[in-house]
Design a protein around this nucleic acid. Structure first.
Lengths: 329, 329
DNA sequence: TTGAAAGCGTTACCAA
DNA sequence: TTGGTAACGCTTTCAA
């Protein structure tokens, strides 16, 4: 690997001048610059980011913490972050926390030790204290905080919408799946749904699903129908859980959506391929990722954002696990 | 952040001694060591990985290139790599190439510039020349190479199995979906299936799907039934495509598996939630990730592996998009 | 407009 | 058994 010294030698100048030329800082004569550019090209020189990082105490790396890379919602978020960061010359390193605090802490440590210039976290951990004394800017994604800028979908409205659509389509014994108690976004969805359900004055039961992961989803689904065998409308905590519920409903021979309506949350790509295709509340995951990236970049550029909160709208995606709306015309 | 100097000062020794103590290199008196350990603890000192990396020209970071983070097969792979690496104190940074060569090159550059100690690539790009002159060890995952160690599933056998199961379950007009031409693994599956189909002397058509990604899968599915409306057995190039085919088959009102059998490839977690649950050829993705990690670690530890190839077995997962086998007893 | 040199935090050589 | 110091590749200050 060629170093800045090699370039300097080839161009017949000092390393200081090469550095100035590369970074457009201070004066460099135009002719000198040409010599340097040529030397760089000929040697195929790429600055050593580690050395840069050691001096500057910042790299061009952005850390992204994902709670569970296997839930398709998160890769979608990641893609949004990635694309936006790419446009600005930052590189993303993804850490999969696997819903475990120690893994999350490991990654944060790794990020610190490698001088990331900023961090985006979609962590699902309730406690955020380990984010308090970071030396680089932070954006929270798919969750909120009173102390940090954040991007999230309008969970309350999402929950409300889900309930409203189910009710207006005729479900009368609704089961509301409540996501992990420590997860704010899940709680907001829950609150939205509960409020709407109360208003509608319809019977409903609540069941808590303590995780969003695949291997548990099946279990929740079974439990759901054991506890509430005659439910005729399920508001799932997310699409993965909804898929499991749909699967279990088929196994039990339920007609969907005639006997049982199901509505998910997220709108992951797979939902359209389920049978029947899953009606769901869409979160604009990719956009959320982009917005988080924008917020982080603004901070990197020196703006102080405090606890700025960006909330993106959700949307009911009507597919076929819900019936047609009952019209009175 | 405390530095090694602070520790040295606090312990009343030189930085050289602290360094020796930390790395267990050279002599350190037991008493001195105690002093140092205590200082480290009190200051909550963590060595600066960037400085280390600058000197050693290697970090503790492992790069992982994924072709498409949205295809659930790859996160599963990543989890395997991650877990194994974690056990050895290495940290994983994931780069999503998005099936685009320039993104892949960008990540490789980032990895180089950040002194990763090794690289695992599940790239889908045909050309591998950019992997030739790397200064760190490389393992290819989910693909093969004559020049590098690699880990992959037995694609040929997988293709063969898929065909065999479909035939033995009574499909007579099979459509074989062939993955991207530049993808070796796809080609091997294809070959295995073709060989078996020839032997079985059953009619079959071939259609090429030029990508594994979601947004295209639907398109291939539609095309499939336009071209071969009376096919009674589909061997999909992977589970994502299979899901799309299943979806389209429903839309066309086909009875599955009575009129049409479908078999996938990969066994991603979602496949069990499809309706009917998808019969598929399982690749042991998580294990593959772990094996790739092992291979990389061996190289990091100085072994030369040449083009060692590890091939893991595949397995037919019988679910309900295939009929019961016709027995003659 | 340029260059010498110090410094970023660590490791390793060599002398003590 | 310990410590001084050069070196890793870069940026920045200051003097020329």
């Amino acid at each position: 690997m060629a170093t800045i010294k090699d370039v300097a030698k080839k161009a017949g100048v000092s390393v200081a001048t090469v550095s100035r030329a590369m970074n457009d800082k201070g004066y460099v004569h135009e002719n000198t610059r040409k010599l340097i550019d040529e030397a760089i090209r000929e040697l195929n020189y790429k600055p050593n980011e580690v050395a840069r990082s050691l001096y500057n105490k910042k790299s061009r790396l952005i850390g992204l913490i994902l709670p569970d890379i296997r839930n398709p919602f998160f890769p979608e978020l990641a893609r949004g972050v990635e694309d936006k960061m790419q446009e600005h010359g930052f590189r993303l390193i993804i850490g999969n926390a696997d819903e475990q605090l120690d893994k999350e802490l490991d990654y944060i440590e790794t990020f610190k030790q490698n001088n990331v210039i900023g961090l985006i976290s979609a962590s699902t951990n309730a406690v955020l204290t380990h984010y308090e004394k970071l030396s680089f800017p932070l954006v929270l994604l798919d969750r909120t905080s009173d102390h940090h800028p954040s991007v999230q979908a309008d969970g309350y409205e999402g929950g409300r919408l889900a309930a409203k659509e189910l009710v207006s389509r005729g479900s009368t014994r609704i089961t509301l799946l409540k996501g992990p108690v420590e997860l704010q976004t899940a709680q907001e969805r829950f609150k939205g749904a509960v409020d709407e359900l109360f208003n509608a004055n319809v019977h409903f039961d609540v069941m808590t699903t303590a995780s969003f992961a695949f291997h548990n989803a099946e279990y929740w689904a079974k439990e759901l129908f054991e506890k509430y065998p005659d439910t005729d409308g399920v508001i799932a905590s997310n699409d993965v859980v909804a898929a499991a519920v749909l699967h279990e409903a088929h196994r039990l021979g339920k007609k969907i959506p005639e006997q049982l309506q199901i509505i998910g949350f997220d709108d992951i790509p797979f939902s359209q391929f389920l049978y029947p295709p899953l009606s769901t509340i869409r979160q604009p995951a990719y956009e959320m990722g982009r917005e988080a990236a924008k917020l982080l970049i603004r901070q990197i550029n020196g703006e102080t954002l405090e606890a700025k909160r960006i909330q993106l709208p959700v949307q009911f995606i009507e597919r076929q696990t819900t019936r047609k709306e009952e019209r009175n015309d």
